[in-house]
Computed example of a mutant assay.
Amino acid sequence: MKGLYCRAGVGDAETKFVIQETSLPEVLSSNLVRVQVKACGLSPLDLKLLADVGIQRDLIPVGREVAGVVQQVGKKVSFFQPEDEVVGRILFIHDETDPINVCVSVSRSPVQKPEKLSSVCVAGALRDGLCAYTALHTHARMAAGHTLLVTDGASSFGLMCIQLACYHGVKVLTTSHSPQKHTFLEQLRPSVGVQDPLVAKVIPVYDGSPDLLSVVLEETGGLGVDIVIDSGVRLQEEASEEAKLLPHKHDIISVLGVGGHWVTSHKDLQLDPPDCRLLHLKSASLTFLNPEVWTASSSQQGRYLHILKDIVDKMSTGVLRPQPEEAVPLYEATVAMETVQRQQKTKAVVQL
């Protein structure tokens, strides 16, 4: 059987992705589930994070969001039986894991996949759903009546945040990065219930669009928003044309209301003393969103599985409707992964 791996470059050498033959142990450990993979999601690989947690290998398995059919279960596994359809994220720490493969051994992470949900859809959207759930529920503690600002709401992650927030009665504001994305966001409607727009205000940030701060304060009566979730932050005034679409860190702090929560995806964020002073005056908080945090502690596995199941159930009922991803075959996986790794904010799905 074949698997997709990352061969990390040394120094300035370019990172390579390769497909090569691999094998799994014939004897399955008592707490593992062996799954025949039907679809696998590809997301950017954080090599620095792997080095920080002590994972250094010549070949690193790639593609950890999987959907497939159970082939074999260990002696201590009671939740699954052969032929069950499952979905889950594979842990980095397990030695018997080869994510994108015909078969994988999965530890502690799968949940049942509803029949009406396609393997390609759930594998491609699982990471974004998990990040949105973590940002809104775990970090921001959202509640009905809150006001939320999502930057770049037309992205796959932003769309998940918008839909999840609206389901829980949160008023949503978002930014758009192009006329096409602006139209898409204004036309968003729930799949069930009252067909009011999901987004209360779409704020364009392209072609000399109005100031973000003034629009948000006008929309919130000068109070600011309770939650901000970004997809990247601009740290300096001078930036490239692409970076100018991102909000400046000072603007994000300025739009926060008293006691607000800022959840950032910018792992290298740096705040100056005036920024910290403004956060202090507002008694606001800043949280970093790390998609891998749930796999860092085994004590969180029960909560983690509950989140995965809730995400899959909401996809099945239409509460969460991810943007469709065009699946690629295994022989195109290396090219697809190189594109994902280079652009960082994109993703891909491999269908087996």
Rank of each mutant, 00 (worst) to 15 (best):
Y133I: 00
S118Q: 07
R141W: 02
Q71M: 11
Y133F: 09
D58Y: 08
G41P: 03
D95F: 02
V102R: 12
V77C: 01
I90L: 14
R57A: 14
R57Y: 09
C121Y: 01
V69S: 05
T97K: 02
Q71G: 15
V66M: 08
I100D: 01
I90E: 05
G145W: 08
G158R: 10
S119T: 07
K113I: 03
V33L: 04
S156I: 03
C103F: 15
K113S: 05
E96Y: 08
G74E: 09
S78H: 07
I90V: 13
R127F: 02
A123K: 03
G153K: 06
C103P: 01
C121T: 12
D128G: 00
V73A: 05
I162P: 04
V122D: 02
A125P: 02
S119Q: 06
H94M: 12
P110H: 05
F157C: 06
V69G: 04
Q72L: 12
V104W: 01
L50C: 10
E85L: 04
Q36M: 09
V111E: 12
F92E: 10
Q36Y: 09
V73E: 05
H94V: 10
S119N: 10
I93A: 13
H94S: 12
V66L: 12
G54R: 09
E96K: 10
E83S: 09
K38H: 15
D98Y: 07
L126Y: 00
S105V: 03
F80G: 04
A154Y: 10
G88A: 06
D52C: 10
A67E: 08
D152T: 14
G74F: 08
V86W: 00
D98N: 11
V86S: 06
E83I: 01
L59V: 08
F79E: 13
D128S: 07
R89Q: 14
L148W: 13
M160H: 12
F80E: 07
C103A: 09
G88T: 05
G88W: 07
V111G: 10
K116D: 10
A154C: 13
P99C: 06
T147C: 15
D46F: 15
V53A: 04
F79C: 03
L91Y: 08
R127Q: 07
V62R: 11
A123I: 03
A51T: 14
L50P: 04
L45K: 11
S155Q: 05
L136Q: 03
H139Q: 09
S78W: 01
T138N: 08
A123P: 00
A125G: 03
V87L: 00
V106A: 14
L136P: 01
L47I: 14
A39N: 11
A125E: 02
F79N: 06
G68M: 02
G41N: 06
V86C: 04
T97G: 10
A39S: 15
R64S: 10
M160S: 14
K113R: 15
L126I: 00
L45A: 12
S43D: 15
G68Q: 05
R64K: 11
T134A: 05
A140L: 05
F92C: 02
V102G: 12
R108F: 12
L42M: 13
L45C: 14
